[in-house]
Each structure stands twice: as C-alpha cells, then as structure tokens.
Amino acid sequence: MSKELRIIGFLCNWCSYGGADTAGVGRFTQPTDLRIVRLPCSGRIDPLFVLKTLTGGADGVLVSGCHPRDCHYSEGNFYARRRLEMVKRFLPVIGIDPGRFEYTWVSASEGQRWQTVVRGFTEQVHALGPIQRFGKDAAAMAAQLAASHA
C-alpha cells in the first residue's frame, strides 16, 4: 500500500474499543494508519469532532460504537446515529468526499469484524489519497482549477 495516511478513529469505551483490543489480542494484522481516541460512548461524539478533524488535516475519520440496542447507556448510539448520518451528508457541501468519513458498529467480541472494518476503511481512504487541506496551498489549488478550466 502507498505511503501511510492519517486516519482518526473515535471509539466507544464499551464495545468498539474492546473489539479493537480483541483484534490485537487475537493478533489480527491491520494497517497502521488508524489512531484511536477512546470515548465513553458514541453518543459523546460531537459532529464537530469529525469536521474539526477533517479540516485539521486528517485524511479520514472512523467512528465506531456499540450495535444499536447494545449501548451501555441504553440509547447513546441511537442519538449518535442521527447526528453522524447528518455529518456524513453535510460533508459534500463543504467539498470533502463523504467516503473519508464512516460510522459503524463493532462489539467487544468482534475482533475479526474490527479487522475487516479497519482494512476496508483504510483501503477506501487510500483510494481517495491524501486530503486537500482547507486553507492550505490555496494559491496552488486555484491555479490548478484555473488550468483545468482553460
């Protein structure tokens, strides 16, 4: 695979973080592009985490929580689902490929599934390449666009 990219994962403490741990204990090989931030619940995720991370230079953001109906706090991931779906749909209007953001559910016992998710998402982000950062190389970008229109 090409040069390593930066992917940030926001994982809930109870399921997905445990799932990632299970994958580690089971020695399932995974790409190393992902850096994990542990949160108490997927309901803790402010949509702004995703937007700030993507405009701050990350090439991809992965959110993972407990499966619906399995939330440690009963309903945190139900609220999260609506919010995360909104962010995912908001990204295209600011010019970020929605494929750079995914949210999914992985339980603590699903080490194998965690491996599949990380592999799949890393592949997806690599296919899109490094992100064009907002506010950086604005001049170069403008020139490139002007050239493509000429």
Partner: peptide
Amino acid sequence: DVAAFEAKPLAERQAFWQEQMS
C-alpha cells in the same frame, strides 16, 4: 440551489468556500 451547488465537482466546491471565506 443546494442541488445545483452539489452538482459541481468536489474540488470546485472546496475552492468556492476557500475563496468566499478568505
């Protein structure tokens, strides 16, 4: 209006906000 804006290529949308927000 939203649909028309979203019909533009991604890079152009980002460049649009870049230009406007500057």
